[in-house]
Design a protein around this nucleic acid. Structure first.
Lengths: 232, 232
DNA sequence: TAGATTGTTAATCGATTAACAATC
DNA sequence: TAGATTGTTAATCGATTAACAATC
């Protein structure tokens, strides 16, 4: 009961760092695939698209896995990061909503190699229960509870329309799922202890549009200024 | 030339706020669809999944669009946010890479209603040039430059395999595209002035896996502590 | 030993939050 | 006027960055 407080001495990794660990992992895999055995923080930072100070600071939360004057052993660091993230084991995942996006997610081959295994595809529409996507049969949404328990599923992916998202989330939580990746364009609410991450295509595009508009405005101002400069 | 510096007096909206504006926009649309004409910051914050202090702080960067003691007019605020983001106009978008994910993106209906118009689908594979997805024909990747100029495309979406991403990005930049949404699991580098946002499925799942693993560890500690408590 | 590079410190920057004065 | 709610202030928190001592 009070155990959580007493044992909270374990290092806490900042959320911003956690979000970058998978990026480092991917960069290390790319380096390893290129036959590179050792790299400096500068090399790895470049491959990951961050600056080296940030990279070293991030890695320092995990431990001390480099050698001063030398750098990092690519395979060793890769293993340490994979272990820290928790992808040295495979995580069973269910995908709910097998429309266009659900299809694409189910077919995504990057899953297996990165620590995840799609154990079931679920859809509420009986018309889809004939289908097999990437070797996995589409099953009725009502099977969620049985499947989640059978495979000890902790992570669920929502790829349904927005209107269904909250109900799907509720059912996932009831089935014992405690991490949800939500692709539906809707805010879902879940109890404490359940993590939700959201991926939203049109929000990403809108953020780009905002910056694009600002660039256009700056450009217009520059041209006005240039014209006025020409007159002066 | 120096115009950019001299006219930089315009309010600057923090990046974290920019990223939330589309969320508020969506929440306001949901409220409007539900027939709600006026809302308080508390109402809107709940709908958007943030706390009301953050919402009010965010809105304060745009201006003063509420009425003290009353709240916000849903339609008016929605328009102001849409104008700020730049989605009162339609942005032409091209999607490159029409595999499973590209198909799903091309078919995504949320585009049109949220300020974007897919003007072209491009793929390097000639086998795909027969296809029509969601009413848009798939064309050769080499047409990018012509299409980008013809439609004044500013935003490009990369949905190719990782190996092709950097080349596609280079060609997009050469064609005058200055905002890129990258779905390929690769870091791409672009010149200054070009914005890139990245969406990465397996990175999102890995972040969830990390937290899931921590929950499992805490749980294990709790059980040990409970057992020890029972013995004491 | 000299050169290279890590891991850490400390300063800076940006984001969040609670509280409340302003005001409808 | 009394009640409600915004917009803003100021304190707090977390993330980034540069610099460098430690050390291979």
């Amino acid at each position: 009961m009070t155990a959580r407080t007493s044992s909270e001495t374990a290092r806490v990794i900042p959320e911003a760092t956690v979000a970058r660990l998978p990026v480092y992992l991917r960069a290390l895999t790319a380096l390893a695939d290129a036959g590179i055995r050792t790299c400096s923080s500068e090399d790895l930072a470049t491959a990951a698209g961050v600056n080296s100070a940030k990279l070293r600071k991030d890695l320092s939360y995990l431990g001390s896995y480099g050698t001063r004057g030398v750098g990092y052993d690519v395979d060793y660091l890769r293993y340490q990061i994979a272990r820290e993230i928790g992808v040295t084991q495979d995580w069973p995942v269910v995908i709910v909503g097998i429309g266009n996006l659900g299809h694409a997610l189910a077919s995504y081959s990057g899953f297996r190699s990165r620590g995840f295994r799609v154990v079931a595809l679920l859809d509420a529409d009986p018309e889809r229960h004939e289908e097999v996507v990437a070797g996995v049969a589409v099953r009725p949404f009502d099977d969620l509870d049985a499947i989640a328990h059978e495979h000890a599923v902790a992570i669920g992916v929502i790829a349904t329309p927005a209107a269904a998202a909250q109900d799907v989330a509720d059912r996932m939580v009831a089935a014992g799922i405690t991490s949800i990746l939500n692709f539906a364009p809707a805010v879902i609410s879940v109890p404490d202890g359940v993590d939700v991450r959201k991926v939203d295509l049109s929000i990403e595009l809108q953020i780009l549009a905002y910056h694009e508009q600002r660039k256009a405005h700056e450009h217009a101002r520059d041209e006005v200024a240039a014209a006025m400069g020409g007159e002066a």
